[in-house]
């Protein structure tokens, strides 16, 4: 029963994230002081000069309004929007590469982002938590202090700075890795896999290093606190070997809040991934978003945003679903 209750509450949270995310995306642009359509038309007028007649202008305005779902009352617009965008994943055609559907671009870009994020989150979580565990478990040693200082220095460095530093050092000065990503399309061969790893290395490193700081500091604090728990003290008094105390007693327990926290911070990590992709021209959702912005392709932009929110919420929900496997107190009775 407890498990069902837990799963139910996580599902409600999942729906809440989706609902609030989609709603904000809908309302914020509409509450803005300036009208995006007018801005777009002004831009076109600038580019096209006097060649467009006022009548054609009005027609364009109506068309654009329909295209962006700006017709009817706010409530009607909202219901249309939810129905089309969220329930059917129909984002319409790309305005820039008309008439290819937006979904096509998104399905090409999404695996890149998910792959990059998945790999770097796992690596960063495992190594960061391992270092944090050592630092917290041997908190008296000089080596632990050094590890903590590493965490303190890395943690506050923002993603874009890390990306710039890596580009500067490894792509520009040493030229070990490419400045921006270039992967030829084609079937998946060993060569292509190599190319993917070679090209993804620096973006992945950015995300991994950025994740270290938080993982190290947070795990260190948790491991240090867990060490004082009565069951750890009792394990020591039973004569359990220190290594096993560290793994079976301290790590197994300290890791639980770390997993909950990971589910909560997926959004923040995703933000960093988008920025990193843009800076490395890595062909994921971030770059797609950048392209959409650059070309004023609103359909593509909305598509990438909705997919972002859905992906992040689903990933967090997935972690929530894994949690009971690790914590028997939720799984059993």
């Amino acid at each position: 029963m407890k498990l069902l209750q837990y799963l139910g509450s996580r599902f409600v949270a999942y729906i809440a994230v989706l609902f609030i995310g989609v709603t904000i995306t809908f309302f914020l642009p509409r509450l803005m002081p300036s009208d995006p359509i007018e801005g777009y038309i002004a831009q076109m007028q600038n580019q096209a000069g006097q060649t467009i007649t006022p009548e054609a202008m009005d027609e364009l305005r109506v068309q654009l309004r329909r295209l962006y779902g700006l017709e009817g009352s706010l409530v009607e617009q909202y219901i249309n929007y939810i129905n089309k965008v969220v329930l059917q994943f129909d984002f319409g055609p790309s305005l820039y590469s008309y008439p290819r559907p937006v979904a096509e671009f998104i399905w090409t870009a999404l695996p890149w982002t998910l792959g990059l994020l998945g790999v770097s989150i796992v690596i960063s979580w495992i190594i960061g938590n391992f270092i944090g565990l050592l630092a917290g478990f041997f908190h008296n040693s000089r080596f632990a202090t050094t590890l903590e200082v590493v965490g303190v220095v890395i943690y506050p460095i923002p993603y874009y700075i890390l990306a710039l530093l890596l580009i500067l050092q490894f792509a520009y000065i040493w030229q070990w890795f490419p400045l921006s990503t270039t992967i030829r399309p084609g079937p998946l061969t060993w060569e292509k896999v190599n190319a993917i790893i070679y090209n993804s290395f620096l973006p992945a490193m950015t995300l991994i290093i950025a994740g270290f700081g938080w993982n190290i500091l947070s795990m260190k604090a948790l491991a240090f606190a867990t060490k004082e728990e009565p069951y750890v003290v009792f394990a020591r008094l039973k004569g359990v070997k220190p290594r096993r105390i560290m793994t079976r007693y301290v790590f197994r327990n300290a890791t639980l809040p770390q997993i909950t926290a990971l589910a909560l911070s997926i959004g923040t990590i995703f933000n960093g991934a988008l920025l990193t992709e843009i800076l490395f021209s890595y062909p994921g959702l971030g770059l797609l978003m950048r392209t959409a912005i650059g070309s004023g392709d609103f359909n593509l932009m909305y598509g990438t945003i909705i997919v972002s929110i859905v992906s992040v919420a689903t990933a967090a929900f997935f972690i929530d679903l894994i949690y009971p496997l690790i914590d028997p107190r939720i799984r059993l009775r």
Partner: peptide, 20 residues
């Protein structure tokens, strides 16, 4: 609150940044 923590804010900020 948890939803606001979980929602990736950056894409939404990007749209706003673009629109204005």
């Amino acid at each position: 609150t948890d939803s606001f923590i979980a929602i990736p804010s950056f894409p939404i900020l990007i749209v706003l940044g673009t629109l204005i």
